[in-house]
Design a protein around this nucleic acid. Structure first.
Lengths: 223, 223
DNA sequence: AGCGAGTCTGTAACACTGTTACACCGCCCG
DNA sequence: CGGGCGGTGTAACAGTGTTACAGACTCGCT
């Protein structure tokens, strides 16, 4: 792989047939493909075809497929930027951080799965963790107790988004939702059966569970 | 694919060279391979070699790879069995259900990822959902409120296990944990820095967050 | 006994994947 | 002018899922 950026060799045309290939151009094209059809659809040959070049050029610029995906993840993660808390009470500020984090993740749908598969979770959530640490401190918690709270919240948000994405990707559940909740299994609570049938409202569910968890975590002393 | 079970053709030897191949034998071998090296290591050719047969026989018995994995998931899910709650207070009984669910999932490490990738989450958690519905009812909640609570808890457990598995699979985080939390980023709280460095104790963290969430969910009225 | 049908297996191929050995081309520098 | 370096292209290798097709084997019927 080359280390430094290269200058354009000869032609002065900005984007025409014989524009020199750069690492960034490869990453851009790869990012576009991943954004459109997911990481699985990114094959080295298709990428080369998209760029109008040969496979080996791709390899020269990015090493191999794994490095390419890694670079992609890295780039998106650093582009995410930091997270600012909003609200007045510590609890509401914490909730706002989790909402911002979830929004960031949902803004890059494929990223979540990619980061998940590569085990880069910690790295990715550093900014959010930072913000959470600050707010938890502001709420008066210190030391291991504070660390536990932060970690619980991070697990909660990440897990929620993972499950949420899963549901979106698999539109038809098997067997169908409706067959699962009849009179008996719902214990004669039709409203509950209705509530458990069909897709949940993720926004509402997320707020509900995060608020519950924050209340539970900030409230009483640990048992 | 054949529909009915077949009898043994001729030989009376139980497991020797020319034992007829059955769908169950294929599933067993596949399950063993997945259990040992994960779903990715299951290739049709390796599976055929393991069984001492040809690839096409596998295809005849199970259709294709996707169906094979699906059948595997299906079989393990139905084998999981139901979940019984333990404890006296509704809160502790709910917590016990979530713990049992997590234990089930952790008992079949690869299953979680497979179910996740196939979007069979709902199907898989039917027994746990059932138990949770019962306990939430016992706690005095009904209708949509109860449904929300159940769903929040399921999301929580599944998400937690997903994140937890992720951490286990990727032993070396990048960059290393220790470099992330110095004096400044930890806001001069060394105990917190220590708490956030290195792998968490999942058992403790799980209990903590589930209890917090249960407390928050069962406690005050929804806002 | 013959024969056909259904069940199952093996050979060989197709299209596709990531990856690489190797030849080549064009530019810049000495 | 010549050599090296940066970058590209051709063609191959090994491995993947999948399937068309030709058989083998067993059973049941005539």
């Amino acid at each position: 792989m080359q280390e430094t950026e290269i200058g354009e060799p000869m032609s002065s045309q900005p984007s025409s047939p014989k524009r020199a290939l750069t690492r960034d151009a490869v990453l851009d094209a790869a990012a576009a493909m991943v954004k459109k059809d997911g990481p699985r659809a990114l094959t080295m040959r298709k990428l080369a075809a998209e760029l109008g070049t040969a496979v080996t050029s791709i390899y020269w610029h990015v090493g191999n497929r794994e490095s390419l995906l890694e670079a992609l993840v890295e780039r998106t993660v650093t582009d995410l930027g930091e997270i600012r808390a909003q609200g007045r009470t510590p609890a509401s500020r914490i909730v706002s951080v989790t909402r911002a984090l979830r929004a960031q993740l949902r803004g890059h749908p494929h990223l979540v799965a990619m980061v998940h598969e590569r085990g880069l979770t910690e790295r990715m959530f550093q900014p959010a963790t930072q913000a959470l640490v600050h707010e938890v401190h502001a709420a008066g918690l210190r030391g291991t107790r504070a660390a536990d709270v932060v970690r619980s919240l991070l697990f909660q948000v990440v897990g929620f988004v993972l499950v949420e994405r899963n549901r979106e990707r698999a539109p038809v559940q098997y067997p169908g939702d409706e067959s699962l909740w009849d009179e008996a299994t719902a214990e004669h609570d039709p409203a509950l059966a209705k509530g458990l049938t069909g897709p949940p409202d993720p926004e509402r569910l997320f707020l509900l569970s995060v608020r519950a968890m924050v209340d539970g975590l900030l409230g009483p002393a640990p048992r």
